[in-house]
Design a protein around this nucleic acid. Sequence first.
DNA 1: CCGGATCGCTACGATGTGTCCCGTCGAGGA
DNA 2: TCCTCGACGGGACACATCGTAGCGATCCGG
Lengths: 194, 194
Amino acid sequence: MPRVRSEEARREVLAATVELMAEQGFDAVSFEAVAGRSCVAKTTIYRHWSSKGALVIDAVTSILTPLPTPNTGDLRADLEACFGSFVDQSPQSPVNRVMASLVDASRRDPDLQRFSAQLIEARRTPLRTVLQLAQLRGEVGADLDIDAAVELLFGAFVVRRLILDLPVTDASRDAVLDTALGGLLTKVPAPQGG
Amino acid sequence: MPRVRSEEARREVLAATVELMAEQGFDAVSFEAVAGRSCVAKTTIYRHWSSKGALVIDAVTSILTPLPTPNTGDLRADLEACFGSFVDQSPQSPVNRVMASLVDASRRDPDLQRFSAQLIEARRTPLRTVLQLAQLRGEVGADLDIDAAVELLFGAFVVRRLILDLPVTDASRDAVLDTALGGLLTKVPAPQGG
DNA sequence: CCGGATCGCTACGATGTGTCCCGTCGAGGA
DNA sequence: TCCTCGACGGGACACATCGTAGCGATCCGG
């Protein structure tokens, strides 16, 4: 094990931070606790991260996967792809718990606030894009309120994962998408094929 | 100032707990901090509440308003009524912040978990009921997935309030309801009237 | 007037946190 | 080979906070 401890230590520290945040929440993340769990000296962690917020931001960033913006030409398929990453994750996935704790902590830390706002936007943007593409194709009406639609779809999945702590299954995803696409009120499909 | 301090002290303690939770989160709620803010001796608080969880549950309960289940005969009006209480609250309302923090803390405390699950159910039940009534009236199809519909509606408002920290205005509420009721896909209303 | 109970204040031990200081180890240059 | 420099790890320290125990003060009811 050569002297490249730095890089390995960094990964261990970030992993420990994620674990702590997932298990005990943002407030349980302290340099001391992270040091104890990561087996990296407390002083070393202080040298690399100037504040708890910076550490948490790096840690959360390390577990995020970039979201693709699908464009299959079919809204339903695009939406399924958008929420595909949600289906894979188990409800007790660290990502869910970390995000829930991050959202709460963001209310009291401007840096975290900006960071989590970016994360949320990154999750909503593909949805918005997919809907705009569908609007251009005429698959959804020109009068569709895209912001409201994003709020509905995004909200359904986020609430299920972060608040209800339920898994997003293929079945639940299909039910939500079917209901959202078709709407609540009784109606008949548009004559043009979609 | 007579000897009915008990009752007054109780209110002050619960109010201080709510404030603390709203401003600094669940973890900042300690018997010490509550005592300092409420001007009630720490030992007195310990005598009345056996644990922090019990104190928080009482405090949250004290700020909740019961949700009526409207039954106007019209789904849209019922839904507007369901979300009417959301419109009044400003985004920085203590209720929002308290609930956000409670949801996060619930992951680590079984008692809080049960409590917050009850709260969530209490918010979702009126929605489910008005949808079922609409289904009986034929206003929505018999094949409507009510659970999915609840998830969509509930999610949109909860995410807006707890995660995005945006106010629920009449305009945003109407947009969400219009979009949900009509659905995303292009369509025409059902010709039949009931 | 007095007994009982409740409340508030203070002090204490325990725990956890952030910072400072020093010893150690590996890398690169003379 | 030897030396110097920089990074890492460990220990010690001061400080803040938490939960608990003990004691006096105050008020209700008889």
